[in-house]
């Protein structure tokens, strides 16, 4: 049954990606403006050259044929040429992908370590700590990443001068230092949500009968929490962590712009402003793929943790 679930989920993934790629291509195809004019920079072109250009970029073909050319090229790693930089979009993406990947990874670690940690702590210890975690997370859960970013810049870059507020840095340690404030800004709202869900999952689990039985059997507290509470609470915690981490992929763009990081998202925004549509297409396609892939990964993990899900999917 599990295998059937995985196959179905994989098929859904492929259909989602096909539809997404179609929407991205169609949106740019429908965009006002003529691609030849963009290429020539507005100069008039002799009809012969026009025909050559149209043939080279398949602009004389019907819409669906053009989509097919674009998609097969994209699958081969060829995403076209940026009209502002006159470089391959794939090369431009390759040089920026590590910043975005590093940022998202750094944030994910913060979310899992601090979010789950705080949630467990406040779930197990009712009282002042729990109350303050609840109040702080209620506010920070609704904190937009760019507002969190300017507050972090003000406190940690301008006043305390612990971390730099702009740029990528050189060398591994310097890069990590440059990514620290962006990673916290990106993580803050997801961290709060994960902490809240973890807290209520722990509370719910600790009340269950099997835990009460374990308590009465005299199982040591640490073992009890690890084996009976955490293991069952892991299902909602994994789900919410996965969903929030997937959403970081898109929100990273905002954080990259605030901190002047040379990442994919900041480049997407720049290209959207300058109407460099081949770049917009390429980066959108890549980010949607990453987003969908992480979501599928979470679903698969969910089934591994809780076999009841795949049984339920039969009906």
């Amino acid at each position: 049954m599990r295998l059937r679930y995985f196959v179905r989920r994989l098929a859904m993934l492929i259909v989602s990606l096909l539809v997404a790629s179609f929407v991205i291509f169609a949106a740019i195809y429908l965009a006002p403006g003529n691609p030849i004019a963009a290429l020539s920079g507005g100069r008039s072109i002799p009809p012969d050259s026009l025909r050559v250009l149209e043939a080279r970029y398949h602009l004389d073909q019907p819409f669906l044929v053009q989509y097919w050319f674009w998609l097969t090229n994209a699958l081969h790693g060829n995403l076209g040429i940026s009209i502002t930089l006159r470089e391959n979009v794939s090369d431009l993406i390759a040089s920026r992908i590590s910043t975005t990947a590093g940022l998202v990874l750094y944030s994910s670690i913060l979310i899992i370590a601090l979010g789950v940690g705080l949630g467990i702590l406040s779930g197990l210890r009712p009282g002042l700590l729990d109350t303050s975690v609840l109040v702080i997370t209620a506010i920070s859960a609704s904190l937009p990443a760019f507002v969190a970013a300017i507050v972090l810049i003000l406190v940690f870059a301008v006043q305390l001068q612990w971390f730099p507020s702009i740029g990528n840095g050189v060398g591994f340690l310097d890069q990590v230092k440059h990514l620290t404030l962006p990673a916290f800004a990106l993580a803050v709202s997801s961290l709060a949500i994960v902490a809240r869900v973890t807290r209520s999952a722990i509370r719910e689990e600790a009340r269950r009968e099997h835990v009460q039985t374990a308590v009465s059997r005299g199982i040591p507290t640490a073992l009890l929490i690890w084996r009976h509470v955490l293991r069952n609470a892991a299902i909602p915690i994994t789900t919410i962590s996965g969903i929030t981490i997937a959403s970081l992929i898109a929100v990273a763009a905002v954080v990259e712009v605030v901190f002047g990081l040379a990442g994919l998202g900041a480049y997407l925004v720049l290209s959207a402003q300058s109407k460099d549509l081949a770049v917009v297409q390429g980066i959108s396609l890549l980010l949607v793929t990453a987003f969908v892939a992480v979501n599928v990964l979470v679903d698969v993990l969910y089934v591994v943790l809780d076999p009841r899900v795949s049984l339920g999917s039969r009906q």
């Binding site: 989602s16 990606l17 992929i249 898109a250 997407l268 109407k275």
Partner: peptide, 22 residues
Amino acid sequence: SGLDIVFAFPGILLAVLASAVF
């Protein structure tokens, strides 16, 4: 299933795309 497919688009990304095009 249509709704599941639309899930593939993060809101911010779709908004950036729409703003670039329109």
